[in-house]
Nucleic acid binder design. Structure first.
Lengths: 210, 210
DNA sequence: TAGATTGTTAATCGATTAACAATC
DNA sequence: TAGATTGTTAATCGATTAACAATC
């Protein structure tokens, strides 16, 4: 999992540090971060060292400069255009999240659906017919997509995106696809997350029973 | 991450094996599973060994019996009741997923919101006022909850659930809470998943540039 | 100076993989 | 029997932690 956990922690650092910043904090020790996130201080320092974040023995780490470095690492400067495919309930929920994403340097620029009842070219984020997808991707130089289509059309959409050389896909369907050389796929499976939660709880209960 | 990856793979095995079963397959080799999921055959065999799934040198593993064991491990026999808090867009999207979850031994039994316009006691899955939450949890012996409330009320809801000794929470808010001894929290942060996807793609592009 | 924290090295831990004997 | 696959052991790999010298 080459550094996957490290990047996940990076995002958690970001969230925490922003909150501290809102509280008026200027500096913070690795130890405090560790406590807040339930990890070890060694790990915090190692992460920072690897990401090139330096502190001082005097007052620890300077929050603003950590955040600055994190933003650079995440590439927040250039806004990333992303399209959404499948304007069903989950899809529209994500569209309405929109604002939050923009804050992160991510902007959903268009959505696509097969249902004409959903088309809305003039919306803030236009909802366009599926058959205009390929043209749109080519004309607007799109590299990222979110897939929230039903199970039945997942494979087909995935294939289109792969031939169009989309570089990154956030996949909410349960169609599990291997990362190809061309396209990186990040699978979010809510059903699995629920099943895993239940498993963890049962596991804990079992352990405490003996 | 004690076995977190292993349980994630278990869910992937399940999905794959179901598909194979639909195709009429009866048996399967560790090698084929490995190829399909992009992992090593050793790992498949080790996972199966740990979960107590036995195969034979003749025809590999019997699909039906793997699935049987997986279902036992996941506790699919007893249906788990779960409530949903926050019937906004994401919340209602999950409510409508409902059917899929039931298939997995998970049933959303009620939803809660503060907005009276959303109340609907007679719906298939009733949407009830937030102030009836505590009573409902106690009367119906609820152990699991999904939180899809806005950021602003996340902390408050989380605290209520913790005092009510809810055992497992699937948290879609960006409020990051440590797992306490009492309550296991599984955080799903869509914003983070997007940011991570973009990071991975940029990383890949950077690597191929040198 | 005394005390506390960073940055880094070495030790530990756990998960994955390679290899192969046992088995069909 | 010859060939192929499982189950398991030992080796490898990588990530986390512990420890501590260097620094403020």
């Amino acid at each position: 999992m080459d550094g996957q956990d490290r990047i996940k922690r990076l995002l958690n650092y970001k969230n925490l540090l922003r909150q501290l910043q809102n509280l008026g904090f200027i500096k913070v020790f690795s130890d405090n971060i560790a406590d807040a996130l339930g990890i070890s201080a060694s790990l915090v320092r190692k992460d920072f060292a690897i990401f090139g974040i330096a502190g001082s023995q005097k007052g620890g780490y300077h929050i603003a400069s950590i955040l600055h470095t994190i933003h650079e690492i995440l590439g927040k400067n250039e806004i990333q255009k992303i399209i959404l495919i499948g304007a069903g309930r989950l899809g529209t929920a994500l569209l309405n999240y929109g604002k939050g994403f923009t804050d992160e340097g991510i902007k959903i620029v268009a959505a696509f659906d097969i249902d004409p009842a959903k088309f809305d070219e003039k919306a803030d984020v236009p909802i366009l017919p599926m058959n205009s997808l390929v043209d749109y991707v080519r004309e607007n130089d799109i590299s990222f997509a979110i897939i929230t289509v039903p199970e039945s059309s997942a494979r087909q959409v995935m294939d289109i995106l792969k031939t169009e050389k989309i570089q990154g896909i956030l996949n909410f369907t349960s169609l599990k696809v291997k990362n190809s050389d061309e396209t990186i796929i990040n699978n979010v499976n809510i059903e699995h997350e629920l099943a895993r939660l239940i498993y963890m709880v049962r596991q804990k209960n079992r352990e405490s029973h003996d």
